[in-house]
């Protein structure tokens, strides 16, 4: 018994060591390269809602910058902030709201002033066919309608609270999720009759959900900032990536996904 425990401990240890060795060994610098192209990896941390657009932008960037690999890390904005604060090696950061960027700016972790590159508003997502017949924000208060929203702690939730305050309509959701994707999941699976998500989420969800726009949404606009991390080892390349996002090409890709101008 004791031996078995020791053996399994040893195995876990070995896995840990392997994992530890695996990550830094990516620099394969011992092969003689005939081209003068320098292999560089630009690390971009972006809000989860930017997954599709930034994946496309990254491949654009790689095409125009030979030898550069863009490594993308998508997560909730607050998660990304804590990762960068803990010293994660990011070159560029892009968030779903200004509040999260302010946390990094205030901590003096951002080089210069972050730039706004897109904005997003809320839309009501309903399962295909709209079983509960939701046509307005007011309809979300129907007693028989199961409504799911984001918790107030996350960006989509604070936008929801803002709209509730502006309209004086208080929602009684069956669930307050910690990510907009969880709200969308509950709607697309038909568990909920309606959910408040971003315009871009409804667009990305495709067939599974229908969108119901409502005029009150303009009362809560989330603006997306992008910035270069001060600790970046590739500040010039990072600035170029930010320029691609704020420039004409980037804006075209963002607009196609449903993002509005900042």
């Amino acid at each position: 018994m004791k031996k078995a425990v020791l053996a399994s401990l040893a195995l876990v240890g070995a896995i840990g060591m392997l994992a530890g060795c695996a990550s830094p060994s990516t620099s394969s610098g011992n092969e003689p390269s005939p081209t003068p192209v320098v292999e560089q990896t630009l690390t971009v941390f972006a809000a989860a809602s930017l997954k599709d657009t930034f994946t496309e932008l990254a491949s654009e960037f790689e095409k125009s910058h030979p030898g550069v690999t863009v490594s993308l890390n998508f997560a909730g904005s607050a998660d990304l902030v804590s990762q960068v604060t803990e010293g994660a090696p990011a070159d560029v950061v892009a968030f779903a709201d200004e509040k999260n960027m302010a946390k990094l700016s205030d901590a003096k972790l951002i080089d210069g002033t972050p730039e706004l590159f897109a904005s997003n508003t809320l839309e009501i997502a309903v399962p295909r066919g709209n079983p509960a017949g939701i046509t307005s924000f007011q309809d979300l208060t129907k007693p028989e309608a199961k409504v799911v929203i984001c918790a107030a702690q996350v960006p989509c939730g604070s936008a929801t609270v803002k709209i509730e305050q502006a309209t004086g309509i208080t929602l009684t959701p069956v669930s307050e999720e910690s990510a907009v994707t969880d709200v969308l999941g509950k709607v697309s699976s038909g568990e909920a009759d309606a959910g408040l998500v971003y315009v871009t989420d409804v667009k990305a969800a495709g067939e599974a959900v229908d969108g119901v726009t409502f005029p009150e949404a303009s009362g809560a606009v989330n603006k997306y900032p992008i910035g270069v991390v001060k600790a970046s080892t590739l500040p010039d390349l990072a600035a170029e990536f930010a320029k691609l996002v704020t420039g004409a090409d980037g804006q075209k890709i963002l607009a196609a996904a449903g993002f509005a101008k900042p």
Partner: peptide, 16 residues
Amino acid sequence: IPAWVAVVAAVGALLI
């Protein structure tokens, strides 16, 4: 048990 096994085991325990 060999000493190296004990060392690796210690690494494993520390991981937790």
